[in-house]
């Protein structure tokens, strides 16, 4: 199954191609969302639409980056409403098969592990991501 493979620093993650609408360069300036949960990086103007973007690092509790480039935004295809995920960079589209279950104590949004050559790739579950973001907002 074809996946969009992207990175948070050196770590690789993937989402099924069907769940991704497009990938865009992250804006240099964000509009902060006041009173929003910590995982929300801000909103961006995507061709006239205002799209909320979630920092995938915060969502996965991944380590903070040593300052890097602006990063990329992976836009999830979820009907009319849109949601972006902020990541470090996008590698491309690769065929991936799940090779193993999620590691113990992994986030709920992790579906399992796959391999790209020798490299490990964490495969994410788009619906669980959506749900996690919604949870962050309602609890937050």
């Amino acid at each position: 199954m074809r996946h969009v493979v992207f990175r948070l620093e050196a770590f690789r993650y993937a989402l099924p191609l069907g769940a991704v609408r497009e990938v865009v360069v992250a804006p240099e300036r964000w509009t902060r969302v006041p009173r929003a949960p910590r995982v929300v990086r801000g909103v961006m103007n995507l061709r006239g639409r205002v799209v909320p973007v979630v920092d995938l690092r915060e969502l996965l509790d991944a380590p903070r980056p040593a300052a890097g480039g602006p990063g990329r935004v992976v836009l999830l295809d979820r009907g009319r409403a849109e949601l972006g995920l902020l990541v470090s960079d996008v590698d491309g589209v690769e065929p991936l098969e799940l090779a193993g279950p999620p590691p113990p104590r992994a986030s709920l949004v992790v579906k399992g592990l796959a391999r790209l050559g020798v490299l490990p790739v964490t495969v994410l579950d788009p619906d669980a991501l959506d749900a996690a973001v919604a949870r962050a907002f309602t609890n937050g």
Binding site: R29, T31, V33, P34, R35, A36, V43, M44, N45, G48, V50, P52, R80, A81, E82, L83, V133, A134, F137, T138
Partner: peptide, 24 residues
């Protein structure tokens, strides 16, 4: 405001200014 932004209390809507920046 589209989901999930409409869940944030205190926001009435959003607009985009001439410089392209979204403003709540």
């Amino acid at each position: 405001l589209a989901r999930p932004l409409d869940l944030v209390p205190g926001l009435a809507g959003v607009t985009i200014l001439g410089d392209g920046q979204p403003v709540f």
